Simulated scan of single mutants.
Amino acid sequence: MSPRRKPDTTPDAPLVWERPEPPVRPSPGPLSREAIIGAAIALADREGLGAVSFRKVGAALDAGPMRLYGYVSTKEELLELMVDAVYGEMPLSEVKGEWRQALRALAHGMRRMSMKHPWFPELLGSRPHIGPNALAHLEATLAAFSETLGFENIDDVMLAVTTVKAYVMGAIQSEVTELRIERETGMDKERWQSANGAYILRMIATGRYPTLGKVVEKATHPSPDVRFDMGLDYVLDGIAARHLR
């Protein structure tokens, strides 16, 4: 077996975004970064992020894993390319208007992509993504603050954006986890509540959990869409209250 090629980590080594692809070879089958990324995303959509490997992606493209290293040097590069491709699926034209509209569009775009690609939230909490699509979304989001009084300090702008992203990542991670549990166990949230409802009622009847009792008796439990929007409004209202006095 050929040894895995080590990536060039010298300071002047070009990143994957600037590194040219090798010349196209017609045999045994043409490859490209775009094809590799597409196959990796399809694999992750079907089987989860843990299933993504050079061997499996290569098999999906009828190519040996060593051929892939000519286009992508490491799995970390492949994951970054996948993230940037998903950013490219979010219409940049939606992230426009004043800051609140832009942040709302970004939040809903990230949530929509997370429902389509359940592995996407797993990669959002790492270091900043610097692919061209991710940078374009960040630029559009930051630019929405450029004419807003109260946000003259760029640090305030960055904190507002990262705060909204933190809320979005937490909210969508919860939703994606619920969907994954449903797929793995065959038990949706309603069935889980039904199976555990009698126990919860017995615990409330002890009198030790009066506030929880109010939740069970009086909470309206809105849909995920409504909860997401309400939580986002809490965050945006808080940002506005701090900076737009």
Rank of each mutant, 00 (worst) to 15 (best):
S2A: 12
P3H: 07
R4A: 10
D8S: 03
D8W: 00
T9Q: 08
P11K: 08
V16E: 12
E18A: 12
R19F: 09
P23S: 09
P23K: 13
P23F: 07
P23N: 08
R25W: 07
P28F: 02
S32N: 09
A40R: 00
A42C: 08
E47Q: 11
G48M: 08
L49R: 04
F54T: 04
G58N: 00
A60Y: 02
P65L: 03
L68C: 04
V72R: 01
V72W: 00
V72M: 06
L81W: 01
A85S: 15
G88E: 03
G88L: 05
M90Y: 13
P91T: 11
E94Q: 15
K96Y: 13
E98R: 08
E98G: 07
L103V: 02
A107N: 09
A107T: 11
R111D: 04
R111Y: 06
S114Y: 06
M115T: 07
K116L: 10
G125E: 04
S126A: 15
S126Q: 15
P128K: 15
H129I: 10
I130M: 14
G131T: 01
A136N: 05
A136I: 09
A136T: 09
L149N: 11
I154T: 08
I154C: 04
D156T: 07
M158R: 14
L159P: 00
A160I: 01
V161P: 02
V161E: 00
T162H: 13
T162Y: 10
T163L: 13
V164D: 02
K165Q: 14
A166Y: 06
Y167F: 15
A171M: 02
A171N: 00
E178D: 15
L179T: 04
R180A: 13
I181E: 09
E182I: 10
M187A: 08
M187E: 10
E190L: 11
Q193S: 10
N196Q: 14
G197R: 04
L201M: 09
R202K: 13
A205G: 14
G207W: 03
Y209A: 05
P210C: 06
L212K: 00
L212A: 10
V215R: 02
V216S: 07
V216I: 15
A219R: 05
H221S: 11
P222Y: 14
S223A: 11
P224K: 01
D225F: 13
G231V: 05
G231F: 08
G231W: 05
L232I: 03
V235N: 03
V235T: 08
D237S: 14
I239V: 09
A240S: 14
A241G: 03
H243T: 02
L244Q: 12
